[in-house]
Simulated scan of single mutants.
Amino acid sequence: MTGLAAVLLYIAVMIVLVLSYALPRVPQVLTGKNRPDAWGRDQPSIDPPLLVRAQHAHANAVENFPLFLGVVVIGALMGKSATVIDPLACFVVYLRIAQAVTHLIGTSFWLVMTRATFFLSQIALIGTMAWKLCQS
Rank of each mutant, 00 (worst) to 15 (best):
V29D: 06
P48R: 08
G40H: 00
P87K: 05
P48A: 13
R53E: 01
P24N: 12
P87M: 02
Q55R: 12
H103E: 09
I74Y: 00
H56N: 14
H56D: 13
A59H: 00
F91N: 04
A89H: 11
F91C: 08
V71K: 10
F65Q: 00
V26Y: 15
A98R: 08
A100P: 08
A76H: 01
D86L: 00
H56F: 12
V73N: 01
L69G: 04
Q28R: 14
W39Y: 13
H56S: 14
I97N: 03
L77W: 13
T107I: 13
F68A: 10
G70P: 01
G106H: 10
I85C: 09
D37T: 14
G75R: 06
D86I: 07
A22Y: 06
H56Q: 14
M78I: 04
I97P: 01
Q43D: 12
L23P: 06
A59K: 00
L104Y: 02
Q43W: 06
A57C: 08
D86Q: 01
S45Q: 09
L50G: 02
A61W: 06
K33L: 11
A22C: 09
V92C: 09
H103A: 02
I74S: 02
I85V: 15
H56C: 05
G32Q: 11
A57M: 00
N64D: 09
K33P: 00
Q43F: 11
V26C: 13
F65C: 06
A98C: 05
W39S: 06
Q43E: 14
V93C: 07
A76Y: 05
A98F: 07
I46E: 14
G75A: 13
V72I: 13
D47V: 02
V72Y: 12
F91R: 03
R25P: 07
A22I: 09
Y94E: 02
P36S: 12
D42L: 11
V29Q: 12
L23H: 11
T31C: 10
G70I: 01
C90N: 09
L30D: 12
T107L: 11
Q43H: 13
L95I: 05
H56I: 13
R96T: 07
